[in-house]
Amino acid sequence: MNARALDPSERLIEQAIALIVDGEGTSDSQALAAREALARWRARSPRHETAACEAMRRWNALAGLGSDLRSRFPAPERTVPPRRRALLSVAAVLGAGLLGGRAIHWYREQPLFTANYTTRTAELLKVTLPEDSRLDLAPLTGLTVALHRDRRVVTMSGGEVRFDVARDLDRPFSVLTRTTRIEVVGTAFTVRDRGGVVTVGVERGHVRVRRVGDPPGAAIDLRPGQAVDAGDSHVGAVRETAVTGMSAWREGWLVFDNTPLVDALATVNAWRRTPIAAPDPRVRTLRLSGRFRADDSAGLLAVLPTILPVTVMARQDGGVELVPR
């Protein structure tokens, strides 16, 4: 044990920094409890107050260490910037030890960039992330982006996104949906989640898909021209398909390839102010194939009874309902 570790004042300073770290790096309720604990700790004696002042001085001196990293990631439009947290390397002050390790872990876990993106009915959005990955969002889509030092994570709440991921071997790119975890390094692929199965299709590169909760060994590899559907309880078989059709909405088209009608309608309704309903299970399970204008759902409704055994009924609330014929 070295002389510094035996210094009582240093021990007190380390205790104070531990409380400061807890106050900055945990949840709101835990942070409040830690700050209250620090206030009580400071009041115990003049020596505790002196140690707390020195701990705060060291913390503030180290708080700017990561500002150069943050400056490389200017906030684009529609972002929600993360709460500014102090960046530190407590090991430089405390040396080796459990506290230093905990603080370094906390520091490394702080994202360099975060943003939320959402689209409205019939709205498209193009996003270029600070590390040059490009995202195209279809209507009624929501997601959160977090760029860390060692990874990039997108969490989708729903909708459709076409990803063109910048290659970075040191920072893998992951997409999290309700049912799946998708891992890539650099590739182009589309993810569709309209409330039913989650569909992943690869245009270029290599994507690894597994259900949330499954071990890494259960992942399925997708190559260009392949797609897979993932439900709550299983992942379907890999199929060959024209994957570019999945993101044809970027050019104003909706392309369906033997798609369950309930899923196709969820996509169509993202472009309509009044949804097309299909409450009857016999209608919902029908399969739809074809290419339709995204902004012409009236044309789709006109042709639908000629290709499927359904009748289009107008509802009193202004909506439209499909019933079996």
Rank of each mutant, 00 (worst) to 15 (best):
R194F: 01
G225A: 08
L304D: 02
L87G: 12
R4G: 00
G236N: 08
R194I: 03
T267K: 00
P275A: 14
Q30H: 10
A63I: 09
V21A: 14
A18S: 13
P324W: 07
V80I: 14
T141L: 11
T306P: 00
H105S: 13
A218H: 15
A227L: 14
M56H: 07
P130T: 11
D232H: 12
T118P: 01
L300F: 13
A219F: 08
L38T: 00
R194V: 10
V320E: 04
L135N: 09
P224R: 09
R181N: 03
E203M: 11
D263V: 01
V323R: 15
A266M: 05
R40H: 12
A96W: 14
S9Y: 14
V312W: 07
T118Q: 13
N269F: 08
F73M: 13
V243C: 02
R178Y: 03
R35T: 07
R210L: 08
A5K: 13
R181G: 00
T267E: 14
R282M: 00
V320F: 03
R57V: 00
R204Q: 15
N116F: 09
L99I: 14
A33L: 14
V154M: 08
D150V: 04
V202M: 04
L124I: 04
E77G: 10
L87W: 15
M1W: 10
R273M: 11
V191N: 03
L125F: 03
G217D: 09
S233K: 04
G205V: 01
L286A: 00
Y117H: 08
A314P: 02
A37E: 09
V255P: 04
R162W: 12
L169Q: 07
R315D: 10
T79S: 15
S89E: 13
A270W: 02
F73D: 05
D280R: 06
L140D: 03
V165N: 05
A75N: 11
L65T: 07
V80C: 06
R239V: 09
M313W: 09
R223Y: 06
E123T: 06
A37W: 05
E321H: 02
V90F: 15
T241I: 06
A43Q: 14
R284I: 00
S174W: 05
L169T: 11
S133R: 05
I220K: 07
D132K: 12
A298K: 02
R44T: 08
G25A: 14
L176S: 10
R162V: 01
A294N: 04
T187L: 09
G196F: 05
D317M: 06
G64S: 14
G64I: 11
